[in-house]
């Protein structure tokens, strides 16, 4: 029992080490992050302005509501991008610096290694997402969302993160298989996940086969839940219909993601792909 507790403690300390490392790196690259944030704001603005553009060209719509709907889609897109980026960096950045072999030969379980990476990604991503939402909603557009319930929206995003991390684990194996092109494939996964999930439109406008895929995408429930909380002012109990599928998908995707990553690690070890030169 003492040994088990000692082992668990060592694992938690190890996961803390991953968080600590990412905190150091974020501190060292903070101005690059600021520059990246400016790009994210610009990208979000181009999307949200679409609502104003439609109105200006004679379209009939509730501009405030449409802008908020688009803004939520853009913020979730950016958030998912941050999570995937951090998880993909588990392999890609470490390989570039040459530290990957030292990380993979440490006695830290892969589950806790990826958990540490995921925890930091969620914390950092949430800060960025909240900041992005506030800058766009209140500084640029002065949106009026009096019914908004922010805490339930926050809970939905946190719960959705579990599933996103599971999918991110599967994606982070790609740089192990292809050091040159694997990272870019993460963007493909991010785009594919959101396009079927109604990122800027209702899922009902999609072809039927895409709607079927939307049913197993966690982003569908995340977007739906957050919009209900922000636009309709729904509380946590009303959002249960979005929360339980998110919990279920998370329950499946985390072990699946870990399994896929471990298979990728075995492949890399068999073919000598952990080396810096690949």
């Amino acid at each position: 029992m003492k040994a088990v507790l000692g082992n668990m403690r060592a694992e938690l300390v190890g996961a803390g080490g991953v968080v600590e490392r990412n905190a150091y790196l974020t501190k060292r690259y903070i101005w690059w992050d600021v520059a990246w944030f400016v790009w994210t704001v610009a990208n979000t603005l181009t999307i949200v302005f679409i609502a104003k553009g439609i109105e200006a060209t004679g379209g009939s719509l509730d501009v405030n509501e449409t802008m908020t709907t688009l803004l939520i889609g853009a913020v979730v897109w950016a958030y998912l991008g941050i999570l995937f980026e951090f998880l993909m960096e588990t392999v890609a950045w470490e390989r570039w610096e040459g530290t990957i072999e030292y990380t993979f030969m440490a006695p830290l379980s892969r589950a806790m290694h990826l958990a540490g990476q995921g925890v930091f990604a969620i914390a950092y991503g949430l800060v960025r997402a909240i900041f992005l939402f506030c800058v766009c909603a209140f500084v640029f557009f002065s949106l009026s969302i009096p019914d908004a319930k922010y805490f339930p929206a926050f809970v939905v995003l946190v719960v959705a993160s579990i599933s996103f991390i599971g999918i991110g684990m599967m994606m982070s194996v790609l740089p192990l298989i292809s050091p040159e092109k694997g990272t870019q494939l993460g963007f493909v996964a991010q785009g594919t996940l959101l396009v079927v999930s109604g990122v800027y439109y209702p899922v009902s406008v999609l072809p039927e086969w895409m709607q079927w895929i939307a049913k197993v995408s966690p982003a569908t429930y995340a977007l739906d839940g957050i919009r209900k909380a922000i636009l309709e002012g729904q509380g946590l109990s009303a959002l249960w219909s979005d929360l339980w599928p998110l919990l279920l998908i998370g329950f499946v995707s985390i072990p699946l993601g870990l399994w896929v990553f471990q298979r990728g690690e075995q492949y890399a070890k068999r073919h000598g792909k952990l080396k810096r030169s690949g």
Binding site: R9, A10, E11, V13, G14, G16, G17, V18, E20, R21, Y24, L25, R28, Y29, E97, G98, T99, E101, Y102, T103, A106, P107, L108, H113, R276
Partner: peptide, 25 residues
């Protein structure tokens, strides 16, 4: 190994600090 691989922007103390956590320290 022949290549002393570290996170280059981080200091020696920071590199040793996070690496030792992986060993439960």
């Amino acid at each position: 190994s022949v290549e002393a691989s570290f996170f280059k922007k981080m200091s020696s103390s920071e590199n040793l600090g996070y690496a030792s956590r992986y060993y439960g320290m």
